[in-house]
Design a binder for these strands. Sequence first.
DNA 1: GGCTAATCGAGACGGTACGTCTGGTCTTGCG
DNA 2: CGCAAGACCAGACGTACCGTCTCGATTAGCC
Lengths: 190, 190, 190, 190
Amino acid sequence: MPRPRSEKARQSVLEAMRRALAADGYEAVTIEGLAESAEVSKQTIYRWWPSKAAILGEALLEGSVPGADVAVPMTADLGADLRAWFSAMSDGLARPEGVALARALIEVTAADPELGLVLNERLAAPIREWVAERVSRGRADGDVRADVDAAAIADQFIAMASYSALIGQPLSAERVEETVVRLLRGIAAG
Amino acid sequence: MPRPRSEKARQSVLEAMRRALAADGYEAVTIEGLAESAEVSKQTIYRWWPSKAAILGEALLEGSVPGADVAVPMTADLGADLRAWFSAMSDGLARPEGVALARALIEVTAADPELGLVLNERLAAPIREWVAERVSRGRADGDVRADVDAAAIADQFIAMASYSALIGQPLSAERVEETVVRLLRGIAAG
Amino acid sequence: MPRPRSEKARQSVLEAMRRALAADGYEAVTIEGLAESAEVSKQTIYRWWPSKAAILGEALLEGSVPGADVAVPMTADLGADLRAWFSAMSDGLARPEGVALARALIEVTAADPELGLVLNERLAAPIREWVAERVSRGRADGDVRADVDAAAIADQFIAMASYSALIGQPLSAERVEETVVRLLRGIAAG
Amino acid sequence: MPRPRSEKARQSVLEAMRRALAADGYEAVTIEGLAESAEVSKQTIYRWWPSKAAILGEALLEGSVPGADVAVPMTADLGADLRAWFSAMSDGLARPEGVALARALIEVTAADPELGLVLNERLAAPIREWVAERVSRGRADGDVRADVDAAAIADQFIAMASYSALIGQPLSAERVEETVVRLLRGIAAG
DNA sequence: GGCTAATCGAGACGGTACGTCTGGTCTTGCG
DNA sequence: CGCAAGACCAGACGTACCGTCTCGATTAGCC
């Protein structure tokens, strides 16, 4: 008997959040503005989300985050694979919308650590997985030392990409190259 | 000829900002609350600072930031030096007030990128300097390859420490150790 | 469909205005103080009234103003009627609250002439009406000259009562008597 | 030995008050604005005047107030004299600057009754004097009844002129005429 | 012709109130 | 019962003035 939640309203709000984020940044987003731009009443927002951060979280998880969706196939060349993937992530976070999203994620994390942690883990998970798999393959191929911690490597890349997006200074191609090369030396077998 | 700016009021505001930051986090700080807690009129704050971010900036630059003041002497052992320093920075950022400061810095950067960039550079500068000097020494000692980019290394450590503070998961001693060891392998000469 | 305006809040504000007026005078009334004393948020006041003057206007029009509500019955004796009415108005304006109201009305008129004019006309109307009717009766009775301007007489009384309230020197009984007697001589027929 | 008060500064402030009054009305005058427009420091104003009202008082007493300076010679014709004088006063208060001054005087009286009373008496005194003298002459000429109260008559005119200036509706020539004629009938001998 | 004491400009200071904005809660009536 | 609409209380925003308080820098007399 009860009317079900309006999916249209929900999508409209998430969409409005993404638009506002790209336009003015997370801090400048207001629930009131969101309601107006989504053509939804304030109450509808408050009924379904406990905070601005929660809306952002849902919007992030639902939309695609640049760099988070690892769409890089694995080849036989470990260095080439890492270079390709890290390069793609860096490029994604260098674009204006990538910067906006990264900053929003960072702000939400600073303001609401609990939610931030969940979001970060959720977004980092596929990256860690990919890196773990690629490194494990490298081990099998004899390219990588046995004691290498794949998660540590993934986290290092994530931290560097986040930080560079935060301060608005994307990693240069040279820096990417240098980092990968140095890493390879650090984990190489033998 | 007019009455000179009150240094007492200035210090009082910066002090209040530091207190509020540690207590409730940057976002929860209000100019009004700052004024009250500093026993200063709102107008006095608005007379001298254009924004909450600017106050934080001044407070950060004036106060000591954990990890920023590299108080680590250099010994003959590169690995020991890096371990000691990175460990100290990590520990500093792991303490509650360190987390609060790091988060505040991050929020300010997200909200006011220009100021954030200035602050980051100002705070990162001594670190880069120390790393550069230590690495250059390492090169002279024949411990480090000639083509190593000291700035890249410093930035990598900074990014990792910041990120871990942001997500509230301090780097474990093992992770610190692993990172330093791996790095050393990556930059070791011949 | 939205929630309708709260009549309770409205009355509460008008009541607070009347209280504040009697207590401290119009100039000392603040919107902020009004809000607090009426237990209403500032925004609610700003939503419905454009200015302090407008609140006063509504409060005046809704409440009873001494002298404005001419409750004096007409007898066969013109002099007695005028004496009774003018005396009552003077007395009303001589009481502290009457002085406060008169002063408030005057200040509002000085500050917002347009609204002041409206209020004055609204409050003076019943007086003019009463005087006009009584004078017209006097004419019919042969007590009053045919060419007498009832409005001019009403305005004269209003001006005198207002002015005496303004300077805080109520008209003495003698002055009232003298004024009425002189007036009667000035308008007497034949 | 001390430096004497600067008469230039004093005049400059009074002048600025008169200008501001004519331009924006009493309420809109601020000490700060006065100081700037008079090219005088705030402290100089606060050193010599206790309040905005006091400055207005001094400015009024020093400058000429329209209608207050009775410059009407007395002739043998009582009616003509009263007509000429009341007409001049009404005209003076009908001009924009007259309205501004009258309103300012009224506001100051409402806000600071004590000072207002002094100012009113000071300004009304010459009027009362003139009326008293003219009426006394009328009595001597046998035009006026013996029991007429000259002060009451003067006050009546003052009240009417003030009130009409306050509500911004100057007395029409007809109303002036009617009032004088009616008055004459009211005070005529025999 | 210096000494000195009050005046003057400038404007910082602690305050109060302004009018605006947003946050979150609540109350309507429509569908 | 979900929803749009929007009134409601709460409280921070940044601004304008208030009246007080230093600051030098003049500027009279009086020595």
